[in-house]
Amino acid sequence: MTKLLLKKLTKTFERRVIFKDINLEWNGPGLFGIAGPNGSGKSTLVKVVTGLISATAGEITIETDGKKLSPSTAIDYIGFASPYLTLYDEFTAKENLEFAVNIRGQQLDEAKMDQLLEHFSLLKRKNDFVKAYSSGMKQRLKIIFAFIHNPDMIILDEPTANLDAEGKQKVYDLVKQTAKEKMVIFATNEEEELAMCDEIIKILSYQPAGRN
C-alpha cells in the first residue's frame, strides 16, 4: 500500500506563484489524476512530488507499506515518465532500461523487460539505438522506463503525448492493470484519461488575491 500526503504545498519561481497551499491525501493502490489547464503547474507539481525540484513551502510524505520514504530512497520506489524526459540516444532500448534498473541497485528482470517491450511492440527493436526510434517509439520506451524497476508509485506526466490510438490504448491497458496493485498518478488534460481515475485534483492557474 502506498500513501501520498501533501500539506500546504507551495511552489514559486522568484515572484511567480505556480501553485499554493495544495493539500491532498491519496491512498493506493489506484489511479489518481492531476488535472488543470496549460500552465497551471501540473508538471511542476509532479516534479516536486518526484523530488526533481524542491517545494518552496509545505510538506510531502510518501509511504510504502507504512514506511516513510526519505528523498534519497524515494527514487527507488517511484517510476516517472513524461514527454520532456530524454533517454540516452547512443544506447539501445535494452541498455537504457538496464541502466535505469542497475543504478537503483536492482537486477534487471529480463523476462519482465521483454514482456513490457512486447506489450508496446518494441521487442524486435530492443537492441536498436534509441536515436533510430521515432518520437512515438521513444514515448513508449519512456513508459516502460517508468515501470521497469517495479516501483510502488508511478507518475505519468502527459503519458500519451506523441502516441497514436494504438499506443494510447496500450498505455491505458498497462496502467489499468498496474493500478490494481500500485499507485498510478496521471498529470493530464485528456478527458479520456481523467475518466479512468479514482480521484482527481484540479489545479487552477494561480492568481494572487486582488488581481483580476
Binding site: 526533481l52 534519497s72 527514487i75 543504478i103
Partner: peptide, 16 residues
Amino acid sequence: ERGTSLLLQLVASPTV
C-alpha cells in the same frame, strides 16, 4: 546539453 540530466536525477541520488 542532451537533456538527460532529468533522467539521472530520477534514477540516482546526488551522492551517486
